[in-house]
Design a protein around this nucleic acid. Structure first.
Lengths: 152, 152
DNA sequence: GTGCACCTTGAACCCAACTTGAAGTCAAGG
DNA sequence: CCTTGACTTCAAGTTGGGTTCAAGGTGCAC
């Protein structure tokens, strides 16, 4: 029980690829770990960090935001201010996402039992009728999900 | 009233950039339009297409899916089968998105009035406690929103 | 002493949906 | 004639979150 893990063991534990962990290190989300004959060795701190990161990703934070979060968490004292700040900024984005997704859902349901025979005459494609509910929301940073890798 | 628009006029009408319209043409979402001394001239068909595309994008279709949709719409006869098919395939993805977004929302609300002083001890970052509700959903093709351009 | 599993590196590649840039064309106005 | 402004082309860049590749190191068992 020496409490350190290789990158492969750590990756397994979090269902990540080793390349992802190296990537996190590269972009500053994880600090550089200790080495044993050139190889990375991770301790409890890294595990805790990845756990936090895991939750943060689920919560819709980008890696950049998570990086800030984790830096503050290290700093010690005013740790939680940044989290509350970030959460408060994130909330309206998430609300907008939910609203948009619901409008989409309604549209899709209607579409599956629409009986028009050509698209041109169908009310589903009446732009103005849809506008009020389904405003397009621009910068929505929930886009990290599922990009850059094909079916893990 | 000659009913044709230049690319710039069309772009204005849909709050797109001209580059986006050329891009749509390049990837086959819009057909090649007529030309007058080299310049694109768009008619009502193009407007209708962009209206459909607009709704399709709101509904979470990718450009690729929209392209199929619009091709079928041209073909004439079995037009709506493809739409119903696409809608049926899309629905569970949207449901998953909504579920995930709601879990996120709960988490964010909790975060804004959590009173922990360091991240390490906070229940918000207890991975296992969150798992059941907030499973990470992988391929979620709603990612077309807000990528590739900074704040239109 | 070699086979094997695991680790190392940097650079290049992936995706979607565009945007940006350079260099050129065209018509109208002064 | 010259400028202005809107158009044209094709190539390359941007974004985020990684993956993939080639070439090589390390340690242990057989």
């Amino acid at each position: 029980m020496d409490e350190t893990l290789t990158i492969g063991q750590l990756a397994n534990r979090f269902e990540l690829k080793t390349s992802a962990i190296r990537y996190y290190e590269r972009v500053g989300v994880l600090p550089e770990p200790a080495r044993e004959s050139g190889q990375r060795r991770y301790g409890l701190d890294a595990i805790k960090r990845l756990e936090i990161l895991d939750v943060a990703k689920r919560a819709g934070f980008t890696l950049d935001e998570a990086r800030v979060l984790l830096q503050r968490s290290d700093a010690g004292s005013p740790a939680f201010e940044s989290l509350r700040e970030l959460a408060a900024r994130k909330l309206p984005e998430v609300d907008a996402l939910i609203a948009r997704a619901r409008a989409m859902r309604t549209w899709l349901l209607t579409a599956t039992d629409c009986s028009c025979t050509t698209l041109d005459v169908c009310a589903l494609f009446d732009r103005d009728a849809q506008k009020p509910q389904t405003e397009v929301v621009r910068p929505l940073a929930i886009t990290h999900v599922g990009r850059g890798q094909r079916a893990a």
